[in-house]
Design a binder for these strands. Sequence first.
DNA 1: CTTTGTGAATTCGTTCACAGCA
DNA 2: TGCTGTGAACGAATTCACAAAG
Lengths: 215, 215
Amino acid sequence: METISKKPIQRLILYKKILNQLKYDGVEYVFSHVLSKLTGFSANQIRRDLMLVGYTGTPSYGYEVAELEESISKFIDDPDGLAIAIVGVGKLGCTLLNHCNWSGHNLRILVGFDIDKKKVGKSNEGYEIFHISQIEKIVKKEKIYLGVLACPDDNAQEMAERLVSAGVQGILNYTKINLILPEDIYVEDTDIMLTMKKISFFTRHKDIFKKKKST
Amino acid sequence: METISKKPIQRLILYKKILNQLKYDGVEYVFSHVLSKLTGFSANQIRRDLMLVGYTGTPSYGYEVAELEESISKFIDDPDGLAIAIVGVGKLGCTLLNHCNWSGHNLRILVGFDIDKKKVGKSNEGYEIFHISQIEKIVKKEKIYLGVLACPDDNAQEMAERLVSAGVQGILNYTKINLILPEDIYVEDTDIMLTMKKISFFTRHKDIFKKKKST
DNA sequence: CTTTGTGAATTCGTTCACAGCA
DNA sequence: TGCTGTGAACGAATTCACAAAG
């Protein structure tokens, strides 16, 4: 079976964001070495990545910004936009959601869940909030495929399991809990302390890592 | 020059978190295949990673939990604990900081910076807040090496540059801006929409990725 | 000339296979 | 037996090198 790897996908998503910005800045064409400057990845690697999406530029002008963005989008984005649920619409969950710019992305928070019955029913930023006892019913009914976990750590494992058993296939985990889930469920963890430790280590040991920049 | 790669380091940081949890659960010994279950990484890979820290277990009992945690910590953590500054102590910044458990980690938020003079001086969660005009002075004086960027997007690039020119070596970027900084500055981005897109893609295309679990 | 697209070479990361040990 | 630690083999990801194009 043909397999593709994760790293190029991550980079493509970043390229698309940057191309979108360039488009709004009025830039029409871009060379791989310019994208290299903007991303820190080598021009070689960028051209290699772009082979995946099939779009080809021209030696004289490079890549047409809007077209390349569109091609990457075709490759990366779901045409319909997967439905997302958030579990835990407390301070953390709401702050994170409000901080996002959801327009222009094929992604939408469809519902929220909370243990606090006072929050139920309130349609906060356009999505409806249900009590967590409704998870199974609503997730199935609305065909929700992705979950954002921003509930207290104590409930995290249970809430994750319930999302998964109701049909959720991928989870963005904002709790500090290391979730144990079936291996076919895609989980992305965001523990800030772990991230800080990573930054701390890499910053202290910069010298022993290869530079990632190109020519 | 001897170089080490980033992925094992990330995994080691996760092992340490899990070992810490096991310790509190009263677990004394752990086998690599148990860590495999808890992390999703193969037992082979875990043993390979542990070679880096130099701690060796025994065939009969596996690894002594507390000792292994300590060894990883020696390898990963800075003995003194690098000083961190946060730029932007608004809703996002404060929520993220409060959500962390800073105790037991060799990391400390030393100061905050904000453009809003009303926030200056207030010692929120134990750290002092200065006006952004003080960045250069305070960062140098307090020898701050890491920065958390949680300011409005409009100021992000400028604030990052000022942190860097004052001596900051690594940045955790919570803005939606793609920062352009010297290549020797370590930057970790956390754009939620990009992460959601990634999860969306990988969830839809699970079948074409290799399973990462082991035997 | 400069830049793209890509086969070939290389480097890097993971898994295999097994010796050595409790 | 069942585990650890590790050289060797393998596979994946990146870079090199260059033909083709404007």
